[in-house]
């Protein structure tokens, strides 16, 4: 068996006085698709922020693509071919679609030579972005912005892609397009970690899934297993 793309052991992290993660363990096989689900406030976004170096890891180990990440800055982590699609898209609103995409590669010496090829892949994945190449990102619709955010992360030529709540604020039809694209990205060999509140759809896509609750993994299994589990519903609505 090949080395896992992501190994997390006993991860603890938080903001200031607030500790959010209380010892998270994960192992994601290379090329597989992991869904992280959980109620609001369970720590999903915090987990991704800790993995991408946006907040410090207080305790525990994180290895991505065989490399320890703890103590590395966000810039160092992305150079290690770990891409991040942040929650709420966070585009450069005054740049065009094309400029936003290129910004994903421009500051990464390793990704720059492959920018042409990767841009073509992004346009293949999201044909709509090719049509809007010259449009200012601030004027895009929510769904298009999400496509740009995912595209920008792909421009960094990642082997591991961390995606935070891509369906947030999208209509069901647009969310569906985005999920389809994520499935395609995974099928091309990129390991995907997806944090989502749309439980149905993300569990359908995922090879493996975990349920986070109060900052720790409550349940794990294949996507199909968790989808069938009544406790998952209960965890969300506290019935």
């Amino acid at each position: 068996m090949t080395e896992p793309a992501l190994v997390v052991r006993g991860l603890e992290a938080g903001y200031g006085k607030i500790q959010v993660l209380w010892g998270v363990d994960l192992e994601v096989a290379a090329g597989s698709f992991l869904a992280v689900i959980g109620a609001n406030g369970a720590g999903k976004t915090t987990l991704l922020r800790a993995l991408t170096g946006l907040i410090p890891v207080r305790r525990g180990e994180v290895h991505a693509l065989g490399r320890p990440l703890r103590g590395l800055s966000a810039a160092q982590i992305v150079r290690g071919r770990v891409g991040h699609v942040p929650e709420g898209r966070q585009l450069f609103p005054l740049m065009t679609v094309r400029e936003n995409l290129d910004a994903g590669a421009d500051y990464l010496p390793a990704a720059r030579p492959r920018a042409e090829r990767n841009r073509a892949l992004v346009y293949e994945l999201f044909p709509r972005l090719r049509e809007r190449e010259g449009q200012i990102a601030g004027t895009l619709s929510g769904g298009e912005r999400q496509m740009v955010a995912i595209g920008r992360a792909l421009m960094s030529d990642p082997k591991l892609l961390l995606v935070d709540e891509p369906s947030l604020g999208l209509s069901p039809a647009l969310a569906s397009d985005v999920f389809t694209a994520l499935g395609q990205i995974a099928s091309e060999g990129v390991t995907v970690v997806l944090v989502e509140q749309n439980v149905q759809r993300s569990l359908q896509l995922a090879d493996q899934a975990v349920v986070l609750e109060h900052g720790a993994v409550r349940q794990r299994g294949t996507g199909a297993e968790l989808l069938a589990d009544p406790a998952v519903r209960a965890a969300y609505l506290s019935l």
């Binding site: 109620a39 369906s167 069901p172 969310a175 569906s176 989502e196 509140q197 749309n198 439980v199 149905q200 759809r201 993300s202 359908q204 519903r233 969300y236 609505l237 506290s238 019935l239």
Partner: peptide
């Protein structure tokens, strides 16, 4: 409200959407 199918859908996502 937590029994309301629309609420369940909002929290869990639409079946097969």
């Amino acid at each position: 409200v937590v029994q309301d199918p629309r609420v369940i859908e909002a929290y869990l996502g639409k079946e097969g959407a």
